[in-house]
Nucleic acid binder design. Structure first.
Lengths: 222, 222
DNA sequence: GCCTGATTCAAACAGATGTTTGATAATACT
DNA sequence: AGTATTATCAAACATCTGTTTGAATCAGGC
């Protein structure tokens, strides 16, 4: 018993909040359980009691926020697909990009903090972390890749998915580094930037036999 | 005495090589000096003797490779600017992107390893590291931003610099995550992608008064 | 030869780390 | 009521961390 089965006090939430902040500020390894439990005003043993280990705590911190972000993305995508007309490329990209940007620039610093953790997760190639996240993220990325492929029917889906990696990189980097600029402006720029980039794909008619083996990010974190 | 003043045996080089590998594999904090010195077959105290501290070793690992990469970039940019005709946007972007991609996909795994460290440096917002790198990188980024601004004379330089952040993000992410695909193909795609994105900048004529305060990545690591 | 500086080495230092333990307090159930 | 489960707590566990020390070894100059 012990792990996972509880929903009682604010202890586990307080741990998650403080851990999220400290992970973003100092990194996973550099943040000690004593630091977390002290700031959260809980006992040192509470982390191992409620989560099982430090590693499990890291994963828990991620899943909590990622669920919200991806839900927002998919909600916007569903809304797009519900209408009769096929969605424009810009609209699909906007559904993917804007929720992330908006979340990052939330009034409190929560979003910005979390996005720096996300960038860290890309850097730290932590096997457990990737495994935990891929189960959630894979679904989302597949749906967006499919929606984009539908707006660019002439193009190879693998190629599109590779380009999507560019967008993810630009988005992640921008979210982690950007200051307190106007989030709407940033989202506008990135959507336009990405749409133009995708639109510049050469037509497959003159495509020579090139390998698209492409073990890109898609297979690692989504 | 002690620090920095030596160039004797292969001890310091052996430490740098092993440290670079382990930092890329496990991160800075997760890599211990005992691990490094054991793999390098040198004494534990050698790191503190030759570099002064673990932090100084981290910086040293970076500077060694970054010098080579940025030199290659600037050499290609100079070559471009030397010709009479003003360079095309794609050519400037290529001079920035391709050396990084090629270096990342070097025959040995050195390049790929190092690029994962670089991504880690973006994630870990280490003050000392940023300070050490900015002194070198700032020069390079300023020159490329200027060259790009010259090929897009109508546009606001601040805006261009912000777009350059998108490219850096896409490049860094791609280099850190991409497998053993064809590097030339990746560079081609990214250059075309970036050029199209930059080319889609709206003309300043209809530019409303929007702030471009933009404390982007440029000021942090270059 | 001897001496001087630079380098290596084994050992110890002082602390921080994640995790476990066993007791204690709080809560829920019957 | 009383019993069982859940949660919190202080303390200790074993291990790892970066750094320092002082003696041993090597180099080259005189």
């Amino acid at each position: 018993m012990s792990h996972l089965a509880t929903q009682s006090t604010g202890t586990v939430d307080r741990i998650l909040d403080v851990a999220e902040r400290l992970f973003a500020e100092n990194g996973f390894h550099a943040t000690s359980l004593r630091q977390i439990t002290q700031d959260a005003e809980v006992n040192l043993a509470a982390v191992n009691y409620h989560f099982g280990s430090k590693q499990a705590l890291i994963v828990a911190v991620f899943k909590r926020r990622l669920d919200a972000l991806n839900s927002a993305r998919l909600a916007r995508l569903d809304e797009l697909l519900a209408s009769d007309a096929p969605p424009a490329l810009e609209a699909v990209l906007d559904a993917f990009v804007r929720p992330a940007i908006v979340f990052t620039h939330a009034s409190d610093e929560t979003g910005h903090r979390f996005m720096r953790i996300l960038l860290r997760a890309f850097a730290d190639q932590d096997a457990d972390l990737h495994a935990a996240l891929s189960s959630e993220y894979a679904h989302v990325m597949r749906r967006f890749a499919a929606a984009i492929a539908e707006t660019l029917p002439d193009h190879c889906p693998d190629r599109i998915r590779r380009q999507l990696d560019f967008i993810v990189g630009a988005l992640t980097h921008t979210m982690a580094e950007s200051g307190h600029d106007d989030p709407g402006q940033i989202a506008d720029d990135l959507v336009r930037f990405s749409a133009a980039g995708l639109g510049s794909l050469p037509h497959p008619s003159l495509q020579t036999a090139n390998q698209v083996g492409a073990k890109g990010t898609l297979e690692i974190v989504r």
